[in-house]
Simulated scan of single mutants.
Amino acid sequence: MESAIPPHLQVSRSRHRRVPDDYKPPYPSFVARHRPAVGSVVMAYFGIQHSPDAPKGLPAALTSLEAVFASANGPRHWDRAAYVDEARYNNTVSVAYWDDRAVFDAWFPAARAAWTGTEAAGLGKFIEVLCPSVNDYETLFSSLGRPEGVAVIADGMSGEVLEHAYWGGMRDRIPLSQTNEMAPVGVPSVVREGRRLRVKPHDNICLIRSGQDWSDTDSAERKMYLEDVEPVLREGMEFLRDEGLAIGCFANRYMTVLDGDGRPTEKSYGMSWWKSLAALERWAESHPTHVRIFGAAMKYLSTLGPAAKLRLYHEVTVTRAADQFFEYLDCHPGTGMLKAVTVEA
């Protein structure tokens, strides 16, 4: 059985894992593997929001973003999802991934100017970017064969890994955790540039993207997921969206993945910004909303066993302030990391 941390990123530990070396997880899981030459990746969220009545300019804005993605040095992979936020605004978010920071840096200035540098009546726009080193994040997949998110640009997948199926496994899979607590340092601030608002967060902000894919399920399993699990998951996602700030969750989006024609698929994911990995861990381990999610998922998986076709994955990232970028144009004040700061009129 492999470690989730690849050999070239393993160092002498000053901080120990939460399980002993002879621990054996009760079911298989896998992680994405980048080739050793990859030193960092980029996760860039390009969002657009509007009130329930969609402005006429929305399709053109999304088409123009696709053209920017297709330009020189554009992302190796991108996907799109939609959700309704706490202010009842519709949001469409296109998430782009690179495995070369220099390529992204060459592409980004023009892309930023084209997105948050261009106003559109009735539309808010935002860009949220993390550029973690490969030491700063982890992935986990319940099955092989269909990578999602940053794993799409990885070289491949691991064999079965050790560090999962216990509280603390998420932290133990991040290479930096071998020697670093990854505690938050500093206080978020905001800078106004005309109508654009730049949020400068603190060191070691945490991002999680955690997804579900039920497209392979048969009718009975799909019914079980949609009736027994998804409502409990949605309740937890809406709690984080509406009340998460009190427990360290700056923003949460429970999104439905869209296909190439903009239609909803049988895939969803929650993505949220947290003050720290520790805050995310506390919610996952002990908060009633996640305890209910965990309980519903375990009942589902124990009922179906190896026959379950539901696919689960996540990616969790902890980054320094220098590797973050958050910018908002004409967005409502509850959008993303704007919730972490006070914006003067």
Rank of each mutant, 00 (worst) to 15 (best):
P109L: 02
Y166Q: 04
P147T: 13
Y97F: 15
L130R: 13
C131A: 05
W115S: 03
E163F: 09
F104I: 01
R112V: 03
T92N: 09
G117F: 00
L123R: 01
D155E: 15
V152K: 11
V93E: 15
L123E: 01
K125L: 14
Y137R: 09
G149T: 09
Y137V: 09
A110C: 04
L140E: 11
V103F: 03
G122S: 05
G149I: 14
L162T: 11
Y166E: 04
D155T: 12
E160S: 13
N135H: 14
A111Y: 07
G159H: 03
G159F: 06
G156I: 10
M157N: 09
D100R: 07
V103M: 02
V95R: 15
A165G: 09
S94T: 11
K125E: 10
V161P: 02
L144F: 06
A165Y: 06
A151P: 02
D105Y: 05
A154S: 15
V129A: 05
A111E: 07
F104W: 01
F108S: 03
V93H: 06
V103S: 14
H164K: 05
E163V: 02
A106Y: 00
A154H: 00
D136C: 04
V129W: 02
N91V: 15
D136R: 10
D136V: 04
K125D: 11
W115G: 01
E128T: 07
L140P: 09
G124D: 00
G149L: 07
V95M: 12
V129P: 03
D99I: 02
P132T: 12
E128D: 14
E128P: 06
A154F: 00
A113L: 14
S142Y: 08
S94E: 03
L130Q: 13
R101S: 13
E148A: 09
A120W: 08
E138F: 00
R112C: 07
T139W: 06
S158Q: 08
G149N: 13
G156P: 10
V95N: 09
D136Q: 15
W115L: 01
T139F: 07
L123T: 08
L123S: 03
S158I: 02
Y166F: 12
S133R: 13
P109R: 02
G156L: 07
T118Y: 03
D105M: 11
E138A: 11
K125S: 15
V129L: 03
L130C: 10
A154P: 02
C131P: 02
V103W: 00
A121S: 07
L162H: 12
T92I: 15
V150N: 09
K125W: 10
V161I: 15
A151G: 11
T139H: 04
G122V: 04
A120Y: 10
G145V: 05
M157P: 04
A110P: 06
F108L: 01
G124F: 05
E160M: 12
E128Y: 00
P147W: 05
N91F: 07
E119Q: 12
G156V: 08
T118V: 13
E128V: 04
D99N: 14
D155I: 05
V129Y: 03
G159V: 01
F141N: 09
E148L: 00
A102T: 12
